[in-house]
Design a protein around this nucleic acid. Structure first.
Lengths: 186, 186
DNA sequence: CTCCAATTAGACCGAATGGTCTAGCGGACC
DNA sequence: GGTCCGCTAGACCATTCGGTCTAATTGGAG
């Protein structure tokens, strides 16, 4: 994997912020994990920690967007795609070490600039739901129903991830399809 | 409201931890909000911040337990009780200032003693789900279905609360009954 | 090779952090 | 009224925090 210095910083920060939250992860810790000196950080992110957090959140957002598209690309139905997505995310949770939370809320809810950060989180969440709704529509759901389903999926995923984190067990995420995808009309 | 010094500390800490997370809220800030000196804190909580956080989480847990019981006490059906619960929590979210997260995850996920804190969170979450399942059973649901419904309610609530926080709007919580309580079998 | 901008390197800083410690207040009890 | 003890009060401490600054290094262009 070829990472530029800037990318290395953002990825490492994203991982640590997701585990410990914005205030829980210190610059020294992030720098030590990358092996880079402080000068590099402030060269690439002139505003320091808050810039880094914003970039880390943007990175996590793009990555998640990619995972969603992957899950739905070859899906034959909305249910199929959603189930694939849950399984992909459960696997991601395991790979990340079972201690990570939702990147967006962990990075952006507790940060400084309370309002700017919070606004970004709402924007990212909405983007995910729109993206999922688009896939649902493409797979045959009427638009209104597609949007409802997308919101349901998002809500449930947040809850499942939280429970997985508390129990250190990704089964909480894997059980979501059974709980939410196969009890409803059509 | 008659508060002992210890209670005042725990309540204030709970509120600030919920808004800013364990590391986001400093002792100085908590102390300033209560008007108490540092000596009082370390008299009542010899282990300092981590003790205080544990007590704050326990407090939030008991309070939530009380709200759940209240919501289901006079309910004529599970749906009825669950709907009341969502509305009560939406109101709580508004009263708390629209910036609070789930007390348990905000206090316990990011704290020190990683494992002890995490274990407590799993314990509290499970207690809530058991409590809701008991209410569901009492209201006529078969045990297995009651447990499933309780888990569904918990997951959805976590997600709804997160979305409410991002949008600063409790409607995300108020819309949960429509999204999850009225589309299923029976 | 020379030069120059981009980047790395890390010493250094003031402020804030969680935590310790001693002094003293004030009510209960004899 | 004196003494004792639970609690309040806040000065003080070492450490860590995010952030700044200057010097060394690197790599490409001429």
């Amino acid at each position: 994997m070829e990472f530029t210095t800037r990318e290395k910083l953002a990825w490492t920060a994203a991982k640590l912020f997701q585990e410990k939250g914005y205030h829980g992860a210190g610059l020294a810790e992030i720098l030590k994990a990358t092996g880079l000196p402080k000068g590099s950080l402030y060269h690439h992110f002139p505003n320091g920690k808050s810039d880094l957090a914003l970039e880390a959140a943007a990175l996590a957002h793009r990555e998640t967007t990619r995972i969603i598209d992957d899950a739905f690309r070859d899906a034959s139905s909305y249910r199929d795609g959603a189930t694939t997505l849950f399984y992909k995310l459960a696997k991601l949770f395991d790979v990340m070490g079972k201690h990570t939370g939702c990147p967006i809320s962990n990075i952006l809810f507790a940060g400084p600039d309370h309002d700017a950060f919070r606004q970004k989180s709402a924007e990212y969440f909405q983007a995910w739901m729109n993206q999922i709704a688009d896939h649902a529509e493409k797979l045959g759901e009427p638009r209104a129903s597609a949007e409802t389903e997308a919101q349901r999926l998002f809500l449930v995923l947040q809850g499942g991830w939280t429970l997985a984190r508390a129990t250190e067990n990704s089964d909480a995420i894997r059980s979501l399809p059974a709980l939410f995808l196969f009890k409803n009309e059509d």
